[in-house]
Design a protein around this nucleic acid. Sequence first.
DNA 1: GAGCACTGC
Length: 745
Amino acid sequence: MSLNMGDRKHKKLKLESAEEIAEEAERETLRKHHDETQQLNFHDDGEFGNITRHQSTTKQANNLEDGKTNPFSGNEFSVGYFDILKTRRNLPVHQQRDEFLKVFQKNQIMVFVGETGSGKTTQIPQFVLFDDLPHLQGTQVACTQPRRVAAMSVAARVADEMDVKLGEEVGYNIRFDNKTSNKTILKYLTDGMLLKEAMDDHLLSRYSVIILDEAHERTLATDVLMGLLKRLVAKRKDLKIIIMSATLEAKKFQSYFNDAPLITVPGRTHPVEIYYTPEYQKDYLDAAIRTVLQIHATEDEGDILLFLTGEEEIEDAVKKIQLENDQLMREGQSGDIKVHPLYGSLPPYQQQKIFEPAPPNVNGRISRKCIVSTNIAETSLTIDGVVYVIDPGFSKQKVYNPRIRVESLLVSPISKASAQQRAGRAGRTKPGKCFRLYTEEAFKKELIDQSYPEILRSNLSNTVLELKKLGIDDLVHFDFMDPPAPETMMRALEELNYLNCLSDEGELTSLGRLTSNFPLDPMLAVLLIGSVAFNCSNEILTIVSLLSVPNIFVRPIQNRKLADEIKMSFAHKDGDHLTLLNVYYEFIENGEDAKWCRENFLNYRSLVSAKNVRNQLKSIMEKHEVRLCSNNFNDRSYWDNIRKALVAGFFMQVAKKKSGANKNNYLTIKDNQDVLIHPSSVLTFENEWVIYNEFVLTSKNYIRTVTNIKPEWLIELAPKYYNLDHFQKGDVKLSLERIHKSVRG
DNA sequence: GAGCACTGC
């Protein structure tokens, strides 16, 4: 008996290239492997009769799950398996297994809304496996996650539930770590990773079902994937899509996917009482601290979670709360409280401290812990035991200004959805309370329903390049769920054109195609590829890697002066990019030693991560035959070549010192923004022309990571961009004209 | 003369 399912997709596939044919052959081998090793388990028990499109029922699936042998691996079930099975059957989502299957079987696309605790992320993919039988088709089921840790930990959990070894039938694929094999039928992966796969295989042909989880988070990758999948379902009738989301934005997903059907599953959390302040709080930080102390003094047992916006604010609040309560405790007026900060740049061992138990009660009063956190505790990290949440209603959010091409972080009011998510953090272990430091009126009238999706707040040059590589020619009419501003699109197209990644007609160039293989901003990828011409791709590879990780320089408050001095010992006179290179050399020279990093006020984790990135980029270079090369270190032109290579990449990010101005007052080229060189720069004497890595809007307009260059290089290396006909009259144009003349003369 | 919400490839 044969189900012949493998043929179903095979016929539909139009093979277009040698690469695809080779891939298809590989899949064929896989299918055979599956047929030989696994088909028996399903067929022997006769559950799946002679049908062309298998349609399972909960009863069938239950029987298989309750059986002796694992239908997917062929192994006998372990004892532990049945224990886990019991808890799984208790999850809310299990109640609706039949309902889910009916909708899934009848539709190509469906929307599944499950609140936290419903079990959707772990169970729905397994329900799908019993219906879709990917192991018999030689296909895979994909489930995307916005974050790496989620993909890893959920995969591990599901492998346990299915009683298989992680990396075999169930695996995950994230950057730097691919735990899948030719046995893998269920794969958890980051949304960015699936997008990357789509760039090489536009039909995503290895998948029979794609589940987009946490779609409500609307990451850039999720949004692009949704647009892509919407097109793909027309070409691949055998592909099924499930959009999973946690909030009530479900209607928007439904209508976007041509009125796809919806299933809603309740979550399993405890009720959370919401309190509002009677009036507007001018100083939310002060109000938050008072609220913490009041809860601590008057409420029942349970930990406190306070949301603030950033590192500095958090450290400040932690100190104040701890100080004030210590005083109260000495006076016998309150129990002990342990206050923990929590934010992304905190080293992991310090992040772990939030899980330490609360201190013992004193003064016959309740003691507890209080976590003061950024948004990281809203989605990425959950802390059990939290009963009280304090929500001042703000977070730092990325905004993009396409006019001056600058992304910046701004403290802004959160959305209703965020407020709801924050409140939910109080009800994970028992009924909780959420104190919102704004009025109910403000919540209803001033907070927007949903935060703006990332695609509306970002520079899109990378996304546009990806879409081009994905074969989308008509970007203007690409069906985004929320189309980005035309100006943002134009800016991206323009930038890619200047980088020679897109032709004047908007076609992907060979450089553009090469560039899209690198997990980098297009500008950095072009810089890297272009550095071969200056015989310094090894050096630029290091610099680019260091630019793609968090800041490597550490500057503790109590040791600022010493940290600055040590940083200057690494300094190169021509600027920060070359200084980064010096630091990396010495890091390697000193055996990549954590202690050496501490002594030199360098962030060890960042440097290790830069090394990882460097290795990944290096292997991509090797794969695409981008030569790795260096000039002789003792050559007089060694450093100049690196600076020239930098100019060839950063020619759009140049600033010129304002004539007659104080030192450090610069004007950006073309956009004419007044900027200052960031005080962290190693540049000590005045340089007329500089390139910069980023433009940051904080207390002032700063350019950060800056290198001194010669203006004639601009004209030599980026003639198209430095065509003076396109420049506004003024200081910059005048100087460039002078240089033009001297270059010619 | 000063800052880094959070992700992802």
